[in-house]
Design a protein around this nucleic acid. Structure first.
Lengths: 344, 344
DNA sequence: AAAAGCGATGTTACCGGTAACATCGAGACA
DNA sequence: TGTCTCGATGTTACCGGTAACATCGCTTTT
């Protein structure tokens, strides 16, 4: 055990300590840290003092004095979904280069939890907030509006945007997938998704399916089962139930690639060939869909890019706000793409 | 657009505003928020004022005044790995109930980046820090020691612990998997992992393999390929190379389930049966391993639990520190378990 | 040579809370 | 009735930085 560990409670060094050691005023130390005009000689003295003492400036004090923090808030429905983890990663990559760091919140798919997190995290006066989805409580909107903080909604195209957004239409994407299957000749097409109305994106995909079914003049076959986040086991159970209820189903669309994979494995267990007996498509273009057998037809959406773009917008908005400029109102639509693979 | 949006830059309300509206002093407002003894009538007045103004206390000011923040820092090598995302989720679940929130950092498997993040994030005076792994730069250790902040290292059992730890021996786990395969009768056992020395856990698993090989008096067959985080495609390529170099290999251990899955799919493409022609085992018990065909033999480790436990330890340490008590020095060993499945 | 300009540094006040101590009024008690 | 006690509330100072302005010495301008 080293010396510092021995129970002594020494106060960590402050800027005043650095100033005293360097023989200058606090303000000069502050200027050196901010990279403002200070003579070479003084800079060197101050840096040496900082090094000697192991000084780390206190962020709270800085934030309080300037009214500006270094936080970006990121709220996701669940970190257990690699989709959202990737989005957070993209966001982080976009903002960390600007000296910003991430305050992470997990809403667990509950809007009340989202509102609570917004309330809690806004107390840190973040310079930007990334939300997932476009469904929010009025309270959430009110809090964000009052805080006058730049906001980006992701993973959707909001009807009533708070400010900016980066996403795609889950309705349109699901409908496009249906049409792709229809073009391939499939007619009796089912859908499996979660039973929770809280998963707004899941609900929208289902809605896209229903719209496409209606447009094709067909009958819907929807099997709702399991709570979000949807896993492989949900997919297996769902496809079993769906095929029991509608045995002549030719193709199944799934709310995510994970459930599609689970569904395919269940079909294999039941001796059904995919796509020979039943075709199965997913959503999200997860890694597994590119490497499993059969490879899975899916909708590709690049979650990392969504997060990255959201981060760029927030950085830009924060800069604009600092300069007193009006903030942009971008609605950034990211492309989705139907990936036709072996499973359909 | 509502009134607040109309370009006017109104300052958000402060505690002084609340106090004035309620007809009391700032201190009384502060007491109400802290839930200290204030008369019912005054409490009601204050709460109404808070509600009316939409007041949100400023966390920086509070932190500065009390010297206590509400942050827990979480550093992971990569959020792209669901393992670490799950650990972060567990950590979040453990600490969010105590009013703490997560400051997230992604080290990208680089110790220099870790040190930089520690330096940056310590400026926010977190009440606890969760690190991944036991390999850290001296600078990282020095910074953490000087900050006197509770630290938990995860995913390993450190030889030289900074303070506390929650994890398991990656060496022992890999060796145990080797022995399991050996008991099943496999003799010519290979190993595939990443080529990057930065992935310390991967290196340790390889070391465990090498130790077990030596103990069994066999010859090692190691194929290193790809940068961390290791993906399915790395597994496919690796197994191809390994089987080209040592065609009579009977079994292959993989650094992760993802590479194991990729390896199995590659074998199928080559017309090799798994486990008939070659057995393949993974590491981590990812969801895919339980649902794919064949199901994958692996080492199960529960990343969520590691994070959760780390969070509990940090909360306890933070509480102890606040009361001036000595902090515990727990080295928490979480169980790993060999999951024998169809692939071996 | 006096005034003006300018770079480098110091001084003061303030950001928005909270700890610690002061104060005040009402009921208890002698 | 006067003093003591105690709960409720107010006052003051301070946490650790930074903005804004003041100051100082030296060079430039006329």
């Amino acid at each position: 055990m080293s010396y510092e560990d021995s129970g002594k409670t020494t106060t960590p060094p402050r800027m005043a300590d650095v100033a005293k050691l360097a023989g200058v005023s606090k303000m000069t130390v502050s200027r050196v840290l901010a990279g403002r005009d200070v003579s070479q000689r003084t800079q060197k003295l101050v840096h040496e003092a900082i090094e000697t003492l192991g000084y780390l400036p206190d962020a709270s004090a800085g934030t309080l004095a300037t009214g500006r923090s270094e936080f970006i808030v990121a709220l996701v429905p669940s970190l257990a979904s690699s989709n959202f983890a990737d989005t957070v990663r993209g966001l982080n990559d976009a903002v960390s280069g600007h000296g910003l760091c991430l305050l992470l919140g997990d809403t667990d798919y509950h809007l009340e939890q989202e509102a609570l997190l917004v309330r809690t995290l806004l107390r840190h006066r973040p310079v930007g907030v990334m939300l997932t989805g476009s469904a929010h409580l009025d309270e959430t909107r009110r809090l964000l509006r009052q805080a006058q903080v730049p906001v980006v909604e992701t993973w959707d195209i909001p009807d009533d945007p708070i400010e900016q957004s980066v996403g795609f239409s889950n309705v349109a994407a699901a409908a496009a997938l249906y049409e792709h299957l229809h073009q391939q000749g499939y007619r009796r097409i089912g859908y499996i998704g979660g039973a929770s109305v809280l998963d707004h994106r899941g609900q929208q995909r289902q809605q896209g399916y229903l719209q496409a079914v209606a447009a094709a003049g067909a009958q819907p076959r929807v099997m709702e089962y399991g709570e979000s986040p949807i896993t492989m086991s949900h997919g297996g159970e769902s496809v079993k139930r769906l095929l029991e209820k509608w045995p002549d189903t030719e193709a199944v669309m799934c709310v995510s690639d994970l459930s599609a994979f689970g569904a395919i494995m269940e079909c294999h267990r039941q001796g059904r060939r995919v796509p020979g007996d039943v075709a199965i498509a997913g959503f999200g273009d997860f890694e597994v869909s590119r490497y499993c057998t059969p490879t899975i037809t899916t909708v590709s959406v690049d979650p990392y890019r969504i997060g990255r773009r959201a981060g760029e917008l927030l950085v830009a908005s924060a800069a604009a706000q600092r300069l007193g400029l009006p903030r942009a109102q971008t609605c950034d639509v990211v492309e989705f793409q139907i990936m036709a693979r072996e499973s359909t």
